[in-house]
Amino acid sequence: MKLTRRHLLAALPALGAAGLGAGFVRMLHGLNQGHFDPRAINTPLTGQPVPDFPTLSPLPDAPALPGLARENFQSLKQPVLLFIWASWCLPCVEEIPFIRQLATSLVNRTAPLALWGLCYKDQPASAARWLEQAGNPFTRLGMDQEGQAAIDWGVTGVPEAFLIMPAPQTGGRIVWHRTGGLTDALYQAHIRPHLEGTP
């Protein structure tokens, strides 16, 4: 059969439809595998320095747990995993066993990673009670009762997590940001690779 221009023209829409179909299958596959989330919000802070945010006070009755300020990121010696959480947040309850386990494993082998917390729109009393019950995994905790600092971090809800690497010039650089709870699978896939080069 001779290929005419007419055949080529007729093939165009078919090819277009096939392309769309392939894209759609890819999308569905991604949904199944968990690396495509249609509701995911893009994270413009990834790759950026730590944003300016108002200094957050610590919990009133926890002398061993300092608050959180922009300056704390200036002189980082190790990467920081910053958790945004609240005592009223159910997914945070699901996430806490993993964070606890992570905290213990970090204490056991000389910590390459610090766990810091930002407590979003919470009462200090409820936050303190929650930490007491769950076991506090954090070495720093800032209370963001108004939720203003969270907005500077581009937080849309709780839980969220940021991985910040030491950067002498800018004072900490965000290399990873995710909305939703943190699991061991996510840790292995996204956080662990960043930690291998650090002392």
Partner: peptide, 8 residues
């Protein structure tokens, strides 16, 4: 707003 939450 865009600086914090992106073009989205």
């Amino acid at each position: 707003m865009v600086q914090r939450y992106g073009e989205f």
